[in-house]
Structure formats: C-alpha cells, structure tokens
Amino acid sequence: MKFLKLSLASLVASSALFAGTYNVDASHSNVGFKVKHLMISNVNGKFDTFSGNFEYDEKTKTLKSLVGEAKVASINTEDAKRDAHLKSADFFDEANHPTLTFKLDKIDGDFAYGKLSIRGITKDVKLNFENNGEAIDPWGNKRVALELTGKINRKDFGLNWNKALEAGGVLVDETVKLNIEVEGILAK
C-alpha cells in the first residue's frame, strides 16, 4: 500500500513538472462573435480588451484550466452608434455588468465545457475546442494556441432587445456565433 501511495505521488509530481501556466497574449488573440442582421447578413464584432490565463500540460498536450474575461466597454462592431447601443441596458448593460467571463470546467475530446457569465447571468456552455499547437517564438518564449467556437442564445443571458420586421422575422437573431482564438505565452 505504501508503494502504491508513493507511486501515485510520484506520478502526480512528475505530471506537474510538464504543466505550465500561460497568460493570454491579447495582441495575438481574438474574442469575436457574429450575429444575423435582418435575418440575411452577419454583423461581426469583437472585444478589444480582454485577459486570461490557462494551464496546459505540455507532456499530454492537454488543457487543464482556462479563465478569461472581456470588458464590455471595448465592444467593437465598427459602428460607434451600434456599439453604444450594445453597451446600454438594452443589451450588455455595461454600467451594471462591465465584464463577461468564461471559466473552463473540462475538455472532453473536441469539446470544451465551461461557465459563461454575461450580464450577471451564468450558464453552462459547450463549445468546440481545437488545440492549434505549440511553438517557440524568436525570443525563446514558449507559446500555445487554442480555439473555442460555438453558438449561444443571447436571450439565455438577458440580451432580449429586438424589433419585429414588417415582412416577418426580427432585426437581430437570437443565435450568436462565438469565435475565440487564444495564443498564450508561458509565464516566467
């Protein structure tokens, strides 16, 4: 029994040697989304200010944890009037809910499960997960790139504003497509 405990402790310790904490490099990452407008075209947007970190096991090539947040004030759809409306109480209500957050629960195959919080409402989400690999940059820093994509229903998070169209349908679709591309740099 003692040998088994020592073996398990050794295994845990050796796997910790290969795990690293990575900080999100915002200049090489993107927190983006798109949503249908008038039921025919897409409006693309992103958050310009975001941060996060993740733990990655280099030996097993496994994402162990990930947390991130985006500032609502930094929403950018390339239209200042629309961005102001999105920050208002009709949508994100930046005055009362200045950040969006995501916390990974687990990776299972090609899927990431976690908790997404928008407008003070937290929901379990399932996103597509892709490990885009590792590289050493020209300055000797180890980097890892990850991608999370998927769909959420904005009404699940209290983003309910809309306008009905005369010909049927609505101005803004309920489904929002997420595209989160993260490049992390190993913390020193």
Rank of each mutant, 00 (worst) to 15 (best):
L4N: 01
L6G: 02
S7A: 15
L8W: 10
L11H: 07
V12Y: 12
A13F: 14
A13M: 14
A16M: 14
L17D: 07
G20W: 10
G20Y: 14
Y22L: 01
A26E: 10
H28Q: 15
H28R: 14
H28W: 06
S29E: 08
N30S: 14
G32Y: 02
G32F: 04
F33Q: 08
V35I: 15
K36D: 03
H37N: 13
M39S: 13
M39E: 12
M39F: 01
I40E: 02
G45S: 00
K46C: 05
F47I: 07
T49D: 14
S51W: 04
N53T: 08
F54V: 13
E55R: 08
D57A: 13
E58S: 06
E58L: 13
T62G: 00
L63G: 01
K64N: 15
E69L: 06
K71G: 00
V72C: 00
V72D: 00
S74W: 11
I75N: 12
E78F: 08
D79V: 09
A80G: 04
K81N: 12
R82N: 00
R82Q: 03
D83R: 08
A84T: 15
A84H: 10
L86R: 10
K87M: 10
K87C: 10
S88F: 05
D90G: 04
D90F: 08
F91G: 07
D93Q: 09
N96F: 07
N96S: 12
H97N: 13
L100C: 04
T101K: 14
F102G: 04
D105L: 12
K106S: 15
I107T: 11
A112D: 05
Y113A: 01
G114E: 06
K115N: 14
K115A: 11
R119C: 02
T122R: 04
D124P: 05
D124M: 03
D124A: 12
K126H: 10
K126S: 12
L127R: 07
N132D: 06
G133A: 02
E134Y: 00
A135C: 01
I136D: 09
D137S: 07
P138N: 05
P138E: 03
G140Y: 01
N141C: 02
N141M: 11
R143I: 05
A145Y: 07
E147F: 01
L148K: 10
G150L: 05
K151W: 02
K151C: 03
D156G: 10
F157M: 08
G158H: 11
N160F: 00
N160D: 13
W161Y: 15
K163W: 00
K163G: 03
E166V: 04
A167M: 14
G168F: 01
V170T: 10
V172S: 07
D173L: 02
E174W: 00
L178T: 11
I180W: 02
I180E: 05
E181Y: 09
V182D: 00
E183T: 11
E183K: 04
G184R: 08
L186V: 09
